Simulated assay, not measured.
Amino acid sequence: MNNKIKVMIVDDSAVVRQVISQTLVRDPGIEVIAAVADPLFAMRRMESDWPDVIVLDIEMPRMDGLTFLRKLMSERPTPVVICSSLAERGAEATMNALSAGAVAVITKPRMGVKQFLEDSGNDVIQAVRSAARANASRLGGRVLAAAPPPKLSADAVISSGLGSGAAMVRTTDRIIAIGTSTGGTQALEAVLTRLPAVCPGIVVVQHMPERFTAMFAERLNSLCELEVREAAHGDRVVPGRVLIAPGGRHMLLARSGAQYTVEIVDGPLVNRHRPSVDVLFRSCAKFAGRNALGVIMTGMGDDGARGLKEMHDAGARTFAEDESTCVVFGMPKEAIRLGAVDTVLPLDRIPGALLQACRD
């Protein structure tokens, strides 16, 4: 019985198709069933052999990738990894694709694509494997997990332990901390667009490549009553504002007297991520304690689970997204397993629960 992940590559560049195909077949658990030049060819091939994962370019002749993605998600949702240029126009289209249901992004430069993809082979393989686990019940659980590389904990960026008792009593201002990964762009949009401008300050880690976080924040800002922006070092966490950790850097909550601020720092990957949810959540446990609300939503792996447990143990109210609405139940599941979660809710009930907890 063939239990390999079946992948279809859709890209108008013959070089990209060849390099991604050669990269993926290095993994014995992956099979490339087709590599085609545009979505029309893809739809013909899919009539006879449906892939588990599609690696999709955005800008293509005859039909662009975004149109194809929307058609796919409306007719037969299938995990899609976007293979997109970092150019501004491509980044905007990629953000639209994530909003439409794509589960991961591989960024590629305009020039030197062949060398870039060859150098990033492990990242390409991991993106496909992660995507294949999305909606695992629909995929029949056929995917074999890759052996994870060694990973660092939040200790690599911030020490554990609560903040000083004197500092904790200087303010009763609430803050909300949210962590999410695969499927999180849609989940965050669903939550943040339902919160009013009077909501407590919010800090967010969404696993996302550099440059995409700024565009993601801009998109949410255009949709929300809240002010949403990519965080900068020293930004204040104030009611009505959402700060999203910039891709490629860690974000920590800090205190300046009675005011909350954020610190944006470099550092090693934590749980194979930068920014890391665990780093943010630990800092919230340390400097906000019981004044914080912690939320962990859809995502692959376990980043954030231990940090949420630290928030819980420091007196914070904690929430996890229910499996029924998660694209991937990995992060919430691990947090629940650790006893880090007070309340498990489907996505549409999280905004109301946060507002009620703030009133309480």
Rank of each mutant, 00 (worst) to 15 (best):
G141P: 05
A217H: 05
R282T: 10
E31P: 00
A42V: 07
H273Y: 09
I176V: 13
R133A: 05
F216S: 02
G179W: 00
R17Y: 02
D235W: 03
G165R: 15
A190R: 15
L192M: 12
T23R: 01
A37T: 14
A305M: 05
F281L: 11
G240Q: 06
T325D: 13
E218C: 11
V228K: 04
K114F: 05
R241E: 12
K108W: 09
I20M: 07
G267Q: 03
E92H: 13
L188M: 08
H207Q: 10
R349A: 12
G65D: 00
C326G: 05
H273V: 01
K4F: 04
V265Q: 06
A97E: 04
R26F: 02
G101W: 00
R138L: 14
I125P: 00
S85W: 04
D278C: 10
K71Y: 09
H273E: 07
D123W: 12
P148Q: 08
L152M: 12
F116W: 10
I178Q: 03
D11P: 04
A288W: 00
R306G: 09
H312P: 09
E47M: 14
F281K: 00
I178G: 02
K6T: 04
M111P: 02
D266I: 06
D12C: 11
V198D: 15
L355F: 06
G141I: 08
E31F: 10
R26V: 06
L162V: 11
A136C: 12
K71T: 09
A214W: 13
V36I: 04
C358G: 02
D155C: 06
G301H: 00
F287G: 03
N122H: 13
M251H: 02
T193L: 07
E227F: 08
L86Q: 04
R44I: 12
I5F: 07
N96R: 12
V169C: 09
V16A: 03
S256K: 13
D235M: 05
E88N: 11
R282L: 07
V113I: 14
S130T: 15
S222G: 15
S13W: 11
M297T: 07
R70Q: 12
E227A: 11
R249V: 07
G101T: 05
V81N: 01
G299Y: 04
E118H: 10
I175P: 00
E210F: 10
I176Q: 02
Q356V: 12
N122Y: 11
